[in-house]
Simulated assay, not measured.
Amino acid sequence: MESRKDQHVRLFEKTYQTHQTNDFDSVRFVHNSLPELSLSKVDSLTTLPFGTWSSPFFINGMTGGSEKTKKINESLAHAAAATGIAIASGSQKAALKDPALHDTFRVLRQVNPNGFIFANIGAELDEEAAKQAIDMLDANGLQVHLNASQEVVMPEGDRDFSSWLKNLERIAHSIDLPVVVKEVGFGMSRATFRRLIDAGVQIIDVAGKGGTNFITIENQRRDRARFDYLQDWGQSTVISMLEAQPYLDQATFFASGGVRHPLDALKGLALGARAIGVSGIFLHTALSSGSEGLITLIEEWKQQMNEIMLLLGCASLDELRRTDLILSGTPDQWARLRGPKPEEMATRSQRIS
């Protein structure tokens, strides 16, 4: 397990692409030549079922479980503490099996004593494991990740997913903290949203295709019977948020996966997400420039998000969610087959009061 965690980080850096394209490029705002707004009036705070965050993006779950990844978590936690944004742990399964690894995750709380921290487990674990993971970090909330695609390609991965939905239902009803059910980079569909909501899940992170690809990473760990043909598996974050449109008033959605810069984050928020999870670029920055480099980047994101909102004439995220969005490429094709109609997205400011 320890070796696998380090392999994941090494293969992430090997496959990380600074200028990769994804479906966020197929979503465009309509330029507003008369914003009629001052930057001092722009506020990007986001209201969530459990409170308010001053910034609508957070450091999403990534790593832990080895001495090398402990240092990474320390760097990420230092940046979260310095900038006041939330942070999620990587999967704590290894530490639940081996108490000697607890400190590789506890460092998140030790370095960031007052911050908002999500614990993290997989859906194969039950509510007792969830409580142990939360206690390990004195966490403010819990992420439960869905990684069937990764497990299938992982050489030593699980092949039995039959208990997942029942575990999620029990966790949702027994944990008295915010519970976020998230993918690990392959997106979600309407059918998945319906089943999660019926099970009592109130917060969903669509975590779509477009960023770190765990099929690619696990495939490189295989000696034979490779799954190269599955590297384009899943739905993008943009498509997942289009799938979420009928359910925006029934659950709170987070968007993550392939978020490269503040403009991508604002597109995710405009599509209805209440918060944006960021992993790849933050991990790459922490590895290459340390916590101080990541702090600088996060502060730049905060400033630039407000400045782009100013350009759009939006003083709040509620106003951002009423802006017109132009779809092209695969998202446009997907929406024409499954909705919402691209024409409605392009003219929604005329109908939303």
Rank of each mutant, 00 (worst) to 15 (best):
M1C: 02
R4V: 06
K5T: 01
D6K: 01
Q7H: 14
Q7T: 03
F12T: 00
T18S: 13
Q20N: 14
Q20S: 15
D25Q: 12
V30I: 15
H31L: 09
N32V: 14
S33M: 07
L34Q: 06
E36P: 03
L37Y: 08
S38H: 10
S38T: 08
L48Y: 13
P49S: 10
T52E: 14
W53N: 02
S54H: 15
T63K: 04
G65Y: 15
S66L: 01
T69C: 10
K71P: 00
S75G: 05
H78V: 06
A80Q: 01
A82S: 12
T83D: 03
T83S: 03
Q92N: 02
A94R: 06
A95Y: 13
A95F: 15
K97A: 10
H102E: 05
H102W: 10
T104P: 03
R109K: 10
F116Y: 12
A123N: 02
E124C: 00
E127F: 04
A129V: 02
A129K: 00
A130E: 00
Q132D: 12
A139K: 04
L146W: 01
Q150T: 05
M154I: 03
P155W: 09
E156A: 09
E156N: 05
S163K: 03
W164T: 04
E169F: 04
R170W: 01
R170C: 01
A191R: 11
R194H: 08
L196W: 13
D198S: 02
A199D: 01
V201G: 01
I204E: 04
V206M: 10
F214W: 03
T216H: 10
I217H: 12
R221L: 13
R222Q: 11
F227D: 06
L230C: 05
Q231S: 08
G234W: 11
S236Y: 13
M241R: 04
L242K: 09
Q250S: 12
A251I: 13
A251R: 10
F253S: 00
F253D: 04
H261W: 11
L263H: 07
L271T: 11
A273I: 12
R274G: 10
R274E: 15
V278W: 15
I281V: 15
F282V: 05
H284V: 05
H284P: 00
L287W: 13
L297P: 04
E300R: 09
L311K: 05
T323E: 11
I326N: 02
L327G: 07
S328A: 06
D332Y: 15
W334L: 02
L337R: 07
R338N: 11
R338W: 15
G339A: 10
K341F: 10
M345F: 14
M345I: 06
R348Q: 14
Q350L: 09
Q350R: 08
R351Y: 15
R351G: 07
